[in-house]
Nucleic acid binder design. Structure first.
Length: 845
RNA sequence: GCCCUCGUGGUGAAAUUGGUAGACACAAAGGACUUAAAAUCCUUGCCCUUUUGGGAGUGCCAGUUCGAGUCUGGCCGAGGGCACCA
C-alpha cells in the first residue's frame, strides 16, 4: 500500500486554498461573526516553535469556527518596526527595510507551509507608510483631545555611543556595546496620558470573564489603585518653602514619624544645585540607571537638608528632611514621610542615619510595651504611643480616624492614588513611525497638517552614526508648514503604539481615508478570541485597551471599548540544554545519545552536560527549526505534535520521540483510511453496528466540549483512542453506517490535520461542504450502564445493569455479586447511597 | 517582602467539576511474527500473595462528607509576576 506522501498532499491543498481564496472573509450580516486573532509576529528572520504553537492553536480554533458556520475573520500581519532591524542593519551594513521585507517573505512562506487558514488579503505590515500614516493621524487626534503631551523624562544614556539605551540593552548597569557605565539623562519626550483612564482600565477588567484571572490580576496590580491620604507637612528652615505634600496609605502611623524623604528629582532639589555634596549624592543616585529594579538593588542613601518638617499630629514634633534615593518622583508627590518602625525601607534608612525609631503599632497578642527590634512591624495590630489613636485597630479604624482628624484641621485629605504611569512613546531610533510634529524657529510645537502625511522615513540612510540617525538627516528634517520653515521631531514612536490598533486595521485593511471604517468595526470588533504569549500580559494588552479608550474618547462610536473579548495565553516550547566541557552551549544537532541518559558531542564523542529544559532561545542554542521539522515530517505532524503533550496554557517539552509518534500516527491513519474506504465501497449486504454510532456520537460530544475548553491535548488523546477503536472494531465485519460515521469523525479531525483530512475527504465525496457534526440524543443514552459498588466508600466491584433500574432490583443485583456477597457475610447493611446509573455505596458494620 | 499559579506513575499528562484515579502518549522490560534486523502487534508497570485475591496510593498533616486528586484550614516544595508603590 502507498505511504502517505505529505509533501505532495500538503502542497496540493495549500495551493488549492490559495487559488480558491478559501479563507477570504467579508462582512455578512446574516451570519454570526467570529474574529480569531493571534498576536502578530515580529519578522526576525524565520518562524520559531513558539510561533508554530501559537498559530496552530489559533488555526484549530478558526477552522472549528468555520465548520460551525461562523463568518470567521482570521488575519495575519507583521509587527515590523523595531530595534532588531536596526541592529542587524548596523552589523551587516544592510538596509532595515530590505532586511525586514526579506524576513517577511521568508516567514510568510513558512506560515503558509503550516497550512494556516489565514485571509492573506488582509495582510498588513506596520512599517508600511499605508499603515503608519493612520497612526500619525491618530497621534494628532489624541493630541487634539489633550491625551498627548510633552515632558522631561529620564532615559538610559550611553556616554560613549552617545545614544539612548533600552532597558534590555543595559546589562549590569553597562551599555551592551560600549560597556560604558550607563547614566541617567533627562530628555524631552512625548507621553500618552494613559493614567487619565486608570479607573476605566481597572473597571473594564470586570467585564472580561473570558480572560485568564492571572492576566487580570497582573493588570490590576500594575494599575495599582490605593486608598490613602494626602498630607501637607509644614516646613521650617532657611529656604522659601512653607510646606511639602506627601501621599501615604498609612496616616495612622504619623506618631512614629521620624524623617521626611524627598526624591532626588523633587522640585526642591533646585535649591541644592550649587551644593557640591548634593551634586555628588545625585550623581551617585544617577549611576543606578532608570530601571526600578536597579534602584531596588542599590544601597539606601540620603542627603540631609537643614529643613525640619512638623508633625501634623503634634507640631512640637519636628523631624529632619532628607533627599533619599529610594523615593520615586513618579509616584505620589515624590515625597514620603518616614515611619521606620512600620516600614522596612524607612527602617533601613533610619538605622543608617541613626534616626529615631518609635513603635506605634503592636501585634494583637502583645502588650503596650511592645518594641520593634531587627525589622519593621508591618502587620495588622493595635495602636500604641499615638495619643487619640491608642487602642484602635489598624489598618482600618485608625486610618479612618487619622484622616478625619487631618481633614478637620485642614492639614490633609483622603486621596485615591494610582501607580499607573503615563506611557512614554518617544524613541531615539530610526526604524519606527515618525512623529508628525515639527518645531518652528522659536521651538513652538507645530502639528504637521494632514495633507503632508504620512511623514515617511528616509530610506537608505547611514546608520553608523552616534545617537539618533534621523538627527543627521538635514534635508528630511526640514518642512514648510504655513509658509514657515520648521524642523521635524526626529524621535520615532514606541513600537507598542503600532501594535495597539492593528486589530482594528485588520477589519478595514484597505481603508485609505482613515485607519479603519466604522461599519467594519461595528461588524467585526471585538476580537472574539485573542491568542498569544503571556509575556504581553501587561503592556501590549493594557496599551491596546487604552487605545480603544482614547480613540472613542469624546466620540463613543465603538460598540465596546474592550478590544479583546476572549484572551488565551499559551505556554512556551521548551527543550533540554547542552553544554560542553568549556561551558559552551551546544545545539541539539551537535549532540547524540544512545541510552537517553548520557549525551555526547558528535564531533569528538566527548561527554557533555545536560541542563534543565528551558524555553527555546537562540542564546542557549536549544532551538528546533520548524522548517527542518516540516521537511522531515510535514505540517500536519508538527501541528499534531505541538498540541499533543501538554495543555496549551502550560509549557510544552519538545521531544523528538513525540514528534516521530505524531508522524507515525498520520502514516497509520492513512493505511486505516484506505481500508475503511475499501469497506465502504464493498457492495455486500452490511450489518448493523450500533457500537460505532454510539462511539461516534459520544466522541462528537466530548471532543466538542474539550475543544471549546481549549483542552487541545485531550483532543489528541481522543484521536489516538479513535484510531484504536476503528482499527479494532471496523475491519471485523461489514458495517452499515460506516460512511456516515466515518465522515463525521473526519470532520472532527479536520481542524488539526487539514491537509490529511482534505485528502481523505476526497475519497468519500469530492465536493463535500463540511460542517461540524451534531449528536443524536438516542445514541448518547445507553441501554446498559456500569455501576460501581462501594463498601464504606471504597470501590469493591463493578456490575453492568440496565439503565434506570429500579432501586430495589438494583440492590438485589448488587448483593448477588460474588465479591460483594463474600464481603457481606456476617455483616449488616446499615445504610446505602445510590447515585443513579453510576454508583451504589453500602455502609456496613 | 508582596501578589498569583501549580504539586497525580520512570516521563508528559487525563479525570465531563464531590462518585471506577492514572485515559492517551513517550520511555523501559518481557513476548509474538521474522534466518536476522527494521516495522508492526500483545503483555507488564506500587506493595503482599505461586494463583485466586488483598492492601496502600494524587506533596505532608488535619477537617467536612456515605464518598475528596477535586471543598476548607495549616504546613512543605516548585514555578511565574512585581515599578522599594509610601
Amino acid at each position: 500500500m502507498d505511504r502517505y506522501n505529505f509533501k505532495k498532499v500538503e502542497k496540493k491543498w495549500q495551493e488549492f486554498w490559495d487559488k480558491n481564496k478559501t479563507f477570504k472573509s467579508s462582512k455578512n450580516q446574516n451570519k454570526k461573526k467570529f474574529y480569531c486573532l493571534e498576536m502578530f509576529p515580529y519578522p526576525s528572520g524565520k518562524i520559531h516553535m513558539g510561533h508554530v504553537r501559537n498559530y496552530t492553536i489559533g488555526d484549530v480554533l478558526a477552522r472549528f469556527k468555520y465548520l460551525q458556520d461562523f463568518n470567521v475573520l482570521h488575519p495575519m500581519g507583521w509587527d515590523s518596526f523595531g530595534m532588531p532591524a536596526e541592529n542587524a542593519a548596523r552589523e551587516n551594513n544592510l538596509d532595515p527595510k530590505e532586511w525586514t521585507e526579506k524576513n517577511i517573505s521568508t516567514m510568510k512562506t513558512q506560515l503558509k507551509r503550516l497550512g494556516l487558514s489565514i485571509d492573506w488579503d488582509r495582510e498588513i505590515s506596520t512599517c508600511s507608510p499605508d499603515y503608519y500614516k493612520h497612526q500619525q493621524i491618530f497621534f494628532l487626534e489624541l493630541f487634539d483631545k489633550g491625551l498627548v503631551y510633552r515632558k522631561e523624562n529620564y532615559v538610559n544614556w550611553d556616554p560613549i555611543d552617545q545614544t539612548v539605551l533600552a532597558n534590555e540593552q543595559v546589562i549590569d548597569g553597562k551599555g551592551w556595546r560600549s560597556g560604558a557605565q550607563v547614566e541617567r539623562k533627562k530628555l524631552n519626550q512625548w507621553f500618552f496620558n494613559i493614567s487619565k483612564f486608570s479607573e476605566q482600565l481597572l473597571n473594564g477588567l470586570e467585564s472580561l470573564p473570558q480572560w485568564p484571572n492571572k492576566v487580570k490580576t497582573m493588570q490590576k496590580n500594575w494599575i495599582g489603585k490605593s486608598f490613602g491620604c494626602e498630607i501637607d507637612f509644614k516646613i521650617e528652615g532657611n529656604l522659601p518653602v512653607k510646606s511639602i505634600k506627601c501621599y501615604t496609605t498609612r496616616p495612622d502611623t504619623l506618631f512614629g514619624f521620624s524623617f521626611l524623604a524627598l526624591s532626588p528629582d523633587h522640585p526642591l532639589s533646585k535649591y541644592f544645585e550649587n551644593n557640591f555634596e548634593f551634586q555628588k549624592f545625585k550623581k551617585d543616585c544617577s549611576k543606578t540607571g532608570t530601571t526600578e529594579e536597579s534602584i531596588a538593588q542599590a544601597e539606601k542613601i540620603g542627603f540631609k537638608t537643614n529643613l525640619l518638617a512638623l508633625n501634623p499630629m503634634d507640631p512640637k514634633m519636628k523631624v529632619p528632611v532628607y533627599f533619599a534615593n529610594f523615593v520615586l518622583m513618579d509616584y505620589g508627590f515624590g515625597a514620603v514621610f518616614g515611619c521606620p518602625a512600620h516600614d522596612q525601607r524607612d527602617f533601613e534608612f533610619a538605622k543608617k542615619y541613626k534616626l529615631n525609631i518609635k513603635t506605634v503599632v503592636r501585634p494583637k497578642n502583645s502588650n503596650d510595651d511592645f518594641q520593634i527590634k531587627d525589622e519593621a512591624f508591618v502587620e495588622d495590630g493595635l495602636m500604641i504611643n499615638s495619643s487619640f489613636l491608642d487602642g484602635l485597630k489598624t489598618p482600618g479604624e485608625a486610618i479612618e480616624k487619622s484622616i478625619d482628624y487631618l481633614t478637620k484641621k485642614k492639614l490633609g485629605k483622603k486621596k485615591i492614588n494610582f501607580r499607573l504611569k503615563d506611557w512614554g512613546i518617544s524613541r531615539q531610533r530610526y526604524w519606527g513611525c515618525p512623529i508628525p510634529i515639527a518645531y518652528d524657529k522659536k521651538g513652538n510645537i507645530i502639528k504637521v497638517p494632514k495633507n503632508k502625511l504620512p511623514i515617511q522615513l528616509p530610506e537608505k540612510i547611514n546608520l553608523n552614526t552616534k545617537g539618533n540617525p534621523l538627527d543627521y538627516q538635514k534635508q528630511w528634517k526640514e518642512i514648510q508648514i504655513n509658509g514657515e520653515n520648521c524642523t521635524l521631531d526626529t524621535d520615532t514612536l514606541d513600537t507598542f503604539v503600532d501594535s495597539s490598533w492593528y486589530f482594528l486595521r485588520f477589519c478595514s485593511p484597505e481603508s485609505s481615508k482613515y485607519g479603519f471604517d466604522e461599519e467594519d468595526i461595528k461588524y467585526w470588533m471585538p476580537v472574539d478570541q485573542y491568542i498569544g504569549g503571556v509575556e504581553h500580559a501587561i503592556l501590549h494588552l493594557l496599551y491596546s485597551r487604552f487605545f480603544m479608550q482614547a480613540l472613542s474618547f469624546e466620540k463613543k462610536n465603538f460598540i465596546s471599548t474592550e478590544p479583546f473579548k476572549g484572551l488565551f495565553t499559551q505556554g512556551m516550547v521548551c527543550h533540554e540544554t547542552y553544554k560542553d566541557e568549556n561551558d559552551k552551549w551546544l545545539s541539539p544537532d551537535e549532540v547524540f545519545t544512545e541510552n537517553g541518559k548520557d549525551y555526547f558531542k558528535i564531533k569528538d564523542r566527548k561527554k557533555i552536560f545536560v541542563g534543565p529544559s528551558e524555553s527555546m532561545s537562540k542564546s542557549k542554542k536549544n532551538t528546533i527549526d520548524p522548517e527542518k521539522i516540516m521537511n522531515l515530517y510535514g505540517a500536519d505532524s508538527v501541528r499534531f505534535f505541538i498540541l499533543s503533550d501538554s495543555p496549551p496554557e502550560k509549557d510544552v517539552q519538545w521531544s523528538e520521540q513525540g514528534m516521530i509518534a505524531s508522524y507515525k500516527y498520520i502514516q497509520k491513519f492513512w493505511i486505516l483510511h484506505k481500508k475503511i474506504i475499501k469497506e465502504i465501497k464493498k457492495k455486500k449486504k452490511k450489518n448493523e453496528n450500533i457500537d460505532l454510532t454510539i462511539y461516534t456520537n459520544k466522541l462528537i460530544e466530548k471532543y466538542t466540549y474539550s475543544l471549546e475548553k481549549f483542552n487541545m491535548n485531550v483532543l489528541i488523546a481522543y484521536l489516538h483512542e479513535t484510531y484504536n477503536f476503528l482499527n479494532k472494531e471496523i475491519i471485523k465485519s461489514d458495517i452499515k453506517d460506516l460512511e456516515e460515521n466515518y465522515s463525521k469523525i473526519l470532520v472532527l479531525m479536520f481542524p488539526i490535520l487539514p491537509h490529511l483530512i482534505s485528502e481523505c475527504m476526497e475519497d468519500i465525496n469530492k465536493n463535500n461542504k463540511l460542517s461540524w457534526p451534531t449528536t443524536q440524543k438516542k445514541y448518547l443514552e445507553e441501554k446498559y450502564v456500569n455501576i460501581v459498588i462501594q463498601i464504606n466508600g471504597k470501590k469493591k466491584s463493578l456490575i453492568q445493569t440496565e439503565k434506570n433500574l429500579d432501586e430495589k432490583v438494583l440492590l438485589e443485583n448488587v448483593k448477588k455479586d460474588k465479591r460483594i456477597s463474600n464481603l457481606l457475610e456476617n455483616k449488616s447493611i446499615f445504610k446505602h447511597i445510590i447515585v443513579k446509573n453510576k454508583l451504589v455505596n453500602l455502609i456496613i458494620k
